[in-house]
């Protein structure tokens, strides 16, 4: 166990190093250069562009820039080129905004997928199964922004309530329950939109797992000995079908920093995705690279946790 953990950590650190190199190269070798200076503004002279490059070490060779960048990052000193804010503080702020979306989205996905998937598996081939299958595929086939606009227009036109942003604007000094509920309402649409793909995929997966388990001998045995079908499904089958999902908890970790650019743009949600997108547009390398790095760390941590969970829940695996 300990040696597994040790080995994994070493391996993941090496992977992380390569990720950092690759992402650094991708960004720095792409054509075009970052600049806070608009090259087409007549008031900017080439000397100023040069001065900016110097200030951001862009005149140094690549490997020096690499060392500088990660040194600053680990010292917590790296700042965005765009507004001189500390990158980590920026990410943290956006992370807190994306977090509720992530939590509600995950909650919806996980609570909804299981009943849907299980029911579809129990009544497989039936109308319910087929219609949920169809709806699931329908949901993952709609271009996200198209769906979002449809939803917004429908909700706004028929209910006349604001749905954009993190809260109703100009609510002023309302009592805290309504402020809180207002925030929940604003979470609803974007998180539902974010969750549709997840529900579709996860419920299909649940269904497949259930089908797989239901075909096992011990289920047949349980049924043969006359247990009520409900008990067979929900006690014997479900428990074993759940096993792989425990490990999936680790894999949702990277979603923390993901955030959908498209949904956040449409809903004016000041989240991670949009920050990253704006950083790309402004060629704000420190922000792009840091987001990338943090998300790589989360991916690796996620797989690590899921490996560990697997070890814990599945007695057959011993490393």
């Amino acid at each position: 166990m300990l040696s597994f953990i040790g080995r994994s950590i070493v391996q993941k650190t090496v992977t992380l190093f390569f990720v950092s190199v690759v992402s650094f190269l991708i960004i720095h070798l792409a054509p075009g250069e970052p600049s806070q200076v608009d090259p087409l503004n007549p008031k900017f002279t080439p000397e100023m562009v040069e001065r900016f490059q110097k200030a951001f070490h862009l005149d140094k060779p690549l490997y020096v820039q690499y060392v500088y960048f990660y040194r600053d990052l680990f010292a917590g000193r790296s700042v965005s080129w765009r507004d001189n804010q500390s990158v980590l503080a920026k990410i943290w702020e956006r992370f807190l905004n994306s977090l509720p979306l992530f939590i509600v989205g995950t909650l919806i996905t996980w609570t909804l997928s299981f009943p849907i998937g299980i029911r579809a598996a129990i009544f497989r081939g039936g109308l319910y199964d087929r219609s949920t299958t169809f709806v699931a595929y329908l949901l993952i086939s709609i271009p996200g922004f198209f769906f979002a606009y449809l939803l917004i227009i429908v909700v706004v036109n028929s209910f006349h309530v604001p749905v954009i942003g993190m809260e109703t604007f100009g609510l002023g000094e309302a009592p805290w329950p309504s402020l809180f509920m207002d925030r929940i309402w604003h979470l609803l649409l974007p998180s539902v939109l974010g969750a549709t793909g997840g529900i579709a995929v996860l419920s299909r997966y649940v269904r497949a797992q259930m089908l797989e388990v239901e075909g096992q001998d011990y289920i047949r045995t349980a049924r043969a000995k006359g247990l009520p079908p409900e008990q067979v499904h929900y006690k014997h089958a479900l428990r074993n079908a759940l096993l792989p999902f425990v490990t999936m908890f680790g894999l949702i970790l990277p979603g923390l920093i993901g955030g959908s650019v498209i949904i956040e743009s449409i809903f004016s949600w000041p989240g991670m995705g949009r920050m990253a997108y704006e950083a790309i547009l402004a060629r704000d390398y420190p922000v792009i690279l840091t987001v990338n790095f943090v998300s790589a760390v989360l991916v690796l941590a996620g797989t690590f946790i899921s490996d560990l969970l697997y070890l814990v829940v599945d007695p057959r695996i011993r490393l």
Partner: peptide
Amino acid sequence: LCFPSFFLILTVVALL
């Protein structure tokens, strides 16, 4: 797999 895929595509497409 460590790169968030849409983000990576976006970065590359935006820069190229």
